[in-house]
Amino acid sequence: MRNLNWNGYFNARDLGGLPTPLSTTGSTVFKRVARGPRREMLTDSGWAEARQWGLSTVVDLRCMHEVGGREGDPVIDNFTHSSLVIVSAPTEDQDNPAFREVCFPILDSPEYWRHNWRILPNLVRETMQAIANAETGVLIHCSAGRDRTGMISALLLGNAGVSPDDVAGDYAESVRAMAGAKTHAPTHDRQASWSVTEADQWIAETASIVREAAANTDAVFDTIGLSQDERSRLRELLTEA
């Protein structure tokens, strides 16, 4: 039930259905937040399926130079998503010298997450605020739907009381989904040529980083300056039926 088979789209999942003691239903609530790759991959029928799911707001984590159609993207009707709210909320400033030096070599790894919120806390905070302020039915996406989206999803799920192991499992699904897939990422993506075996080895090597992020969301939110009210709203988004 978590996988979203919107036409033209892959590596897309609902963040609902994961066990948490903080939820009134025992698990995160479906049809509140979804994660995925670049939205330009969706066909007209894919957008229709997303609307049927309940999509109202798209929170785009990419930098502005990454946004827009690319060769091979489907041609869609101009009115297909005209009534949706699309929020630009980049987690990265790729012109920032410190970010470039520290993070560019590891942008396809959760290793860079802690540097992202340390170097650019205001951008990560503004992303979380955009989600907290959005109407229910939010799609969060970046390019591959794996690393930036993985970082924000890990924080959302950890804040909602989902176990670090389950959060790491969610990240692993995206690694497997994107292994060997072209993503139009702004930097070299070594995973674009990986086999399933290489992806599984990577998951084993990096799972502890994802678990640590999920287990320490309050410390991360302290670092970025997210208010207690905003933390509560994000938690309720995924736990209040």
Rank of each mutant, 00 (worst) to 15 (best):
M1D: 07
M1T: 13
M1R: 14
M1V: 13
N3C: 09
N5W: 03
N7S: 14
Y9P: 00
Y9S: 10
A12L: 09
R13I: 09
D14S: 08
L18S: 04
P19L: 10
T20C: 06
T20P: 00
T20D: 02
S23N: 05
S23K: 04
T24F: 01
T24V: 11
G26Y: 07
R35L: 02
E40L: 03
T43I: 03
T43G: 02
T43N: 02
S45G: 00
S45P: 00
W47F: 13
W47S: 00
E49N: 03
A50K: 01
W53Q: 04
G54A: 07
L55K: 01
L55A: 00
T57W: 02
V58E: 03
V59N: 05
V59G: 08
C63P: 00
M64T: 15
V67G: 03
G68P: 10
E71I: 14
E71G: 10
V75F: 13
F79V: 10
T80L: 06
L84N: 07
L84C: 09
I86Y: 10
I86L: 11
S88T: 13
S88Q: 15
P90F: 04
T91E: 07
E92D: 14
D93A: 07
P97I: 08
P97K: 04
A98M: 10
F104M: 11
P105Y: 05
D108P: 02
E111A: 12
E111I: 08
Y112S: 15
W117F: 15
I119G: 05
P121C: 05
L123C: 04
V124P: 01
M128Q: 04
Q129T: 15
I131M: 04
A132V: 09
A134N: 08
E135R: 15
C142Q: 03
S143V: 10
A144P: 00
G145F: 00
R146V: 13
R146C: 03
D147V: 06
R148S: 04
G150D: 02
G150Y: 05
M151R: 00
I152E: 01
L155N: 01
L156D: 01
L156K: 01
G158Y: 02
N159K: 01
A160N: 04
P164F: 14
D165M: 10
D166P: 08
A168Q: 10
A168M: 11
A168C: 11
S174G: 15
V175F: 07
R176Y: 10
A177G: 12
A177I: 09
A181Q: 15
T183Y: 08
T183C: 11
H184G: 11
H184V: 05
P186K: 03
P186L: 01
H188R: 13
D189N: 14
A192Y: 04
S193A: 12
S193T: 15
D200I: 09
D200F: 05
Q201R: 14
I203S: 05
I203P: 05
I203F: 07
A204R: 15
E205Y: 02
E205Q: 15
T206M: 11
A207E: 14
S208H: 15
E212P: 00
E212G: 07
A213L: 15
A215E: 13
N216S: 12
N216R: 09
T217P: 01
A219R: 14
L226E: 00
R233S: 06
L238K: 11
